[in-house]
Write a protein that binds this DNA or RNA. Sequence first.
DNA 1: ATAATAAAAGATATTTTTATCTTTTATAAG
DNA 2: CTTATAAAAGATAAAAATATCTTTTATTAT
Lengths: 149, 149
Amino acid sequence: MAIFSKTCEYAIRAVFYIAQKSASGMKSGIKDIAAEIDSPELYLAKILQDLSRKGLITSTKGPNGGFFLTSEMLELPLIEVVKAVDGDALFTGCGLGLKQCSELHPCPLHNEFKAIRNDITLMLSNVSIGGFNQELAEGLVSLKKSKTD
Amino acid sequence: MAIFSKTCEYAIRAVFYIAQKSASGMKSGIKDIAAEIDSPELYLAKILQDLSRKGLITSTKGPNGGFFLTSEMLELPLIEVVKAVDGDALFTGCGLGLKQCSELHPCPLHNEFKAIRNDITLMLSNVSIGGFNQELAEGLVSLKKSKTD
DNA sequence: ATAATAAAAGATATTTTTATCTTTTATAAG
DNA sequence: CTTATAAAAGATAAAAATATCTTTTATTAT
């Protein structure tokens, strides 16, 4: 198991890609995005529709249309995307799957997980959606799954 | 998404339960374990068979049979169970699902994830399978999913 | 207005994960 | 050596996640 669902991995990579384009005022078409982040186009379309409905990205239809981010959206912490897609089990749930795990009624790993969850929450709250635009533009980091870059 | 698969959650809870019983020389039947950790009995049976094949737990058939852990098994770090069930994507994989994410060809969150992965790896390496036997015996921690405890 | 473009929406399909059912094998006790 | 017990193994089923196909709606440019 990875830390995020595949759906969420696609969502984050796509949002990073759209962010970088948006920073230079460009809209991105689904075909382009899917190719650039190496994801199934029609599945990604569904994911982006969902993010759009939830207000994390926006889009316009028709010629010259596409997905883009407003400057406010570029400032949002990445955790918003993760929460929108994977929910907040990663941030609030019990690591062993207990429904009523709490300080008073803890699972054996309660404190251990509290620390981990805190690290993850902090990390994803401290990076913004647009925070990697420059590194992406400079080609210092990659969003493509496979080697053909 | 949770951090572990449900299969892995069941596995860890079951192993903790068997560990505590093993510490006092007792074997545990699948029916008993499933009831005590609140998991689907026949599914759990499959999981334990797998752990048994992989040498993380052991069992004997027939009357007075059941699952148990040797003293060596009780000392194993919990990460062995997680690796056996969920693989090591959580410990080595790229957070964004890139196949060739590395120092030289990193994803945008490469360093951020390195820290998180390290925390998780350390935590699961530093707790042993038998490490909670006393707290479990004293009822200070719980393995049951639902409130009826 | 019309045609072309691109996302939205709805329906369906595939794959993986989770769960169950049935039969077989090993062990212990009478 | 027969019966009862309990795990192992194999087959199947249900649910959730991932992926694709088709139709509709909105926008732009001609």
